[in-house]
Write a protein that binds this DNA or RNA. Structure first.
Length: 489
DNA sequence: CTATGGCACGGATT
DNA sequence: AATCCGTGCCATAG
């Protein structure tokens, strides 16, 4: 069901394996991290080797992960997208650092009398000199909110270092004064703030869960929903949310996100992407680089020493050890399965939706999970699981839910928006239908009306020259950057 | 009378 | 089996 044929190894524990692979598939990289951390802590048979070079294929690991390069054979598949990365590509970066940078660097930073400088001074002493340029790069890439909008792998590529290293630096940055500065999303900023806060004073235990898992709910400002999610009463949820509002700041660079202010900001944002697609922007037939985010760095494997020791296990422990070993083994295999499945899935997806990825919503090719399932010879539900809850980062740095790639009407809706945006005359729905028709999209009049309301666009008569935009707040998109491109979906 | 929104149905998707 | 989506019909607003 998962896959037509599986290796004999996997067949040993068919049900367990299947079930676990399935559940792993559903997890986002963040959730996966929790899972793995837990197992790592509780299971002595499991081992995480921190390598920058994969022990099997000896390729340097650009990104953290259980060597996706060699665990799947896909790297040499002839189809267009590369699923992993070669670190040699040269990036034209905002500033030109060059060989003399290490010295010139501090000066250059010093000129800038602002947030970057402020932070940099705090952390510079802690940093290895080699890491300073990275920190500087991060700091100068912050947006007005103090969030980092540049994907880590891009930084890693530019500096020719593994992403894990960039992450390390980033961690240091995040812990300096405007705490959380440099986080990639409001959510992660808040998580960092929570951690730091917890050092100095007690923090309600559920805060972490609320921010980590319930972030989307949290942003809706509904104590009822939040309470339900956390299994506490509305009043308690309200209290919790007050605490969060008072003590945490999703936009580190802003002094306060004041009490009265709370409705406006906090655009709902996915924590971080599970899949990052980038492209060297210049060339038209650019090669896409797809990175599948793995939450752990290095290789996860069964500790060979543990396996050895299995024979010499003390009588009373032998069962326990055995079980640990099995579990570890299972997890590793399932993880590989998961990675493999995701790689294949993403490969196909990227292949089909190339246009969409590069050129935007209007180019989305309608496509169902079922079709994809057939192509990949996977079960539909497998695809569903893999797709749900995942976030994809596009080359233009927007983060979208993966399911958006399957929205059948997205292209039509986008084009409809274009039409309306460029109308010189308020168009009626019927007129829009004909215009769409002339572009090759045939939909019913009623449908246009539906799309309109979906997009929050007012009916023809009401939007004269002035266009009002209202926003649906439930969609997890990076609203701040997103708005300029298209209206909410 | 025309343009829109509501309700509901049937087929597709999950 | 449950849900989502496009559409048609009809009532209502302008």
């Amino acid at each position: 069901m998962l896959q037509q044929r599986q290796s004999p190894l996997l067949r040993q524990q068919p049900t367990a394996h299947l079930a676990q692979t399935m559940s792993l598939l559903e997890l986002t990289s963040g959730e996966l991290k929790q899972k793995i951390d837990a197992d790592l802590a509780s299971n002595p048979a499991l081992e995480l080797i921190d390598v920058r070079r994969c022990p099997h294929c000896h390729r340097p690991q650009i990104a953290p992960g259980a060597c996706p390069v060699c665990s799947s054979r896909l790297k040499d598949s002839q189809s267009e997208p590369i699923i992993f990365i070669s670190p040699t590509s040269d990036f034209s970066s905002p500033r030109n650092y060059d060989s003399d940078r290490n010295d010139a660097h501090d000066e250059w930073i010093a000129e800038v009398q602002n947030l970057p400088t402020y932070v940099f001074r705090q952390i510079a002493p802690e940093l290895d000199t080699a890491d300073r340029p990275i920190a500087a790069f991060i700091l100068t890439s912050l947006d007005e909110d103090g969030l980092l909008r540049v994907p880590l792998h891009e930084i890693a590529l530019y500096h020719h270092v593994p992403i894990s290293r960039v992450e390390e630096v980033l961690r240091t940055v995040q812990r300096s004064d405007p705490i959380g500065v440099g986080s990639q999303t409001p959510q992660s900023a808040m998580l960092v703030q929570l951690e730091v806060l917890a050092d100095s004073r007690p923090v309600p235990g559920l805060c972490y869960k609320a921010v980590q898992d319930g972030f989307n709910i949290l942003t809706r400002k509904s104590p009822e929903l939040l309470g339900r999610f956390l299994g506490i009463s509305s009043a308690e949820a309200q209290e919790l949310s007050d605490f969060i509002i008072q003590n945490l700041n999703p936009f580190p660079a802003r002094a306060h996100w004041g009490e009265n202010n709370q409705k406006a900001p906090t655009p709902p944002v996915y924590q971080h992407a599970d899949i990052i697609i980038s492209a060297s922007k210049d060339s038209p037939d650019t090669q896409l680089v797809v990175e599948i985010v793995s939450p752990y760095s290095g290789c996860l494997r069964v500790n060979p020493l543990f396996k050895e020791a299995l024979h010499q296990a003390p009588e009373d422990k032998t069962d326990e050890w055995r079980e640990d070993y099995e579990r570890a083994n299972l997890l590793v295999k399932c993880l590989q399965q998961r990675n493999h499945t995701i790689v294949r899935l993403v490969e196909k997806l990227v292949f089909h939706q190339r246009q969409f990825i590069l050129e935007g919503e209007a180019k989305l090719i309608p496509m169902t999970r079922a079709q994809l399932a057939k192509e990949l010879e996977l079960h539909e539900s497998t695809i569903s699981r893999a797709v749900s809850n995942k976030a994809v980062q596009l080359p233009d740095q927007r983060i979208i839910p993966m399911s958006r790639m399957f929205e059948r009407s997205l292209n039509v809706r986008t084009i409809m928006q274009e039409i309306i945006k460029s109308e010189e005359h308020p168009l009626s729905d019927a007129e829009i239908v004909t215009r769409l028709g002339s572009r090759g999209y045939h939909v019913a009049r009623r449908t246009v009306a539906k799309y309109r309301s979906l997009e929050g666009i007012l009916p023809g008569r009401l939007r004269n020259s002035k266009k009002k935009k209202s926003r649906r707040s439930t969609m997890p998109i990076d609203a701040t950057k997103f708005d300029q491109y298209i209206q909410p979906v």
